[in-house]
Nucleic acid binder design. Structure first.
Lengths: 210, 210
DNA sequence: CATTGTGAATCCGTTCACAGCG
DNA sequence: CGCTGTGAACGGATTCACAATG
């Protein structure tokens, strides 16, 4: 069990990885922390500190080898082998996520959607992700080897579905419902509450004008 | 111009407001900070500190009047009068947001979607939100009096659309693209990067098992 | 007298600044 | 010589603990 890495560091490293991919595509082979900081509007010391949690990656007097750091970061963040994702709830949001680039790339692949609505079951999302019955979840999860789940269901169904996913071996959960999901042992839970984003916006607007 | 309120405080107050509504529906008229803290897994002192930024709301020896605090909070966060929202990008995500409860309630109302795809223009989302041409944005914005915009467009269109919205009087922007939107003067911007949530999850999983 | 509002103490992340090194 | 890696300083947010008070 590694010492905990802060949420902020995690996000910056994700951003950094994305940026490194772009630099690599541009053909840059080497980059200093100052360059990286400038490109991604961060502080150079912060980049070095973030990386220092995991070892030494740079070359003094030179900077970082872009391709090298990119692949090491990818491995560190658990993104080098693709993960199977399942989405529970085939409403508008669930369908949007299932077809989204964010959930289907080198690192993630949506294997199936699950819903309780008999009219949806058996059909597919636009890109072809099958919609199956939630009753099939327990068997399907182990068959697919899913490790990540996304919950796009009504608030009152969240906890039950989360526990079903956890029992089926899912280790990470993204909860999109407007009801925070209490911690589940052995599972990393991240609540993504859209209402909070929107209200945060109006809050700042209200504060700024008084 | 009020002194800045931290992001964390903002989120907690949103959550608190939501909780107060629930308590009010349950018929509770009074609640201590300890009770609130317990219900929403927070620290009671934190709740009091958060509220202290804005004045004194409680009654010593008693606690807080639920309905009273609820309405004061609502006003403070700029949620007492409904705001008009426009969504740019009528892809899966844009459509999902347009029909979502989070964007259509007492405080927010989606007036229209905008897209560049001629085949979509003129049609409507499932709940009836009209899809219009982005070329109409400038006129439409002032006509509708929209103050909030959501960007669900490809990364390379983000900045242009953001500037168009800003020019049309939009004061708050939610950006769902996987490319952070640099600050725009006079506009509050919130980047909501789904990829970051997903990667954050795998990162924690990778860290926990080493 | 129970509970708020708040100064003081603590914790944690960020920034600075420089020693160490390729 | 230039840039990394890092100990030390800083600052903001959380938590503690208690005096103030309806």
């Amino acid at each position: 069990m590694k010492s905990a890495i802060s949420e902020a560091t995690t996000q910056r490293l994700s951003l950094l990885l994305r940026g490194l991919k772009a630099l690599e595509a541009e053909g840059l082979t080497t980059a200093s922390s100052a360059l990286l900081a400038e490109r991604f509007s961060l502080n150079s010391a912060q980049i070095r500190k973030d990386l220092a949690h995991f070892g030494e990656f740079g070359v003094r007097g030179v900077g970082y080898r872009v391709a090298d750091l990119r692949s090491k970061l990818q491995a560190l963040m658990g993104l080098s082998t693709p993960r199977t994702v399942v989405i529970v709830g085939a409403g508008n949001l669930g369908l949007a996520l299932a077809d989204s680039r964010n959930f289907n790339n080198e690192s993630f692949k949506v294997a199936a959607l699950f819903d309780v609505d008999g009219r949806k079951i058996g059909s597919r999302s636009k890109t072809g992700v099958p919609i199956r019955a939630v009753s099939e979840l327990p068997q399907a999860l182990s068959a697919m080897g899913a490790t990540i789940g996304a919950l796009a269901v009504p608030p009152d169904a969240v906890r039950e579905m989360a526990l079903t996913l956890a029992a089926g071996g899912v280790k990470g959960l993204l909860n999109f419902a407007a009801a925070p999901l209490a911690p589940i042992p052995g599972v990393v839970v991240k609540n993504v509450d859209m209402a909070l984003f929107l209200e945060g916006l109006t809050f700042q607007l209200a504060s700024a004008s008084s």
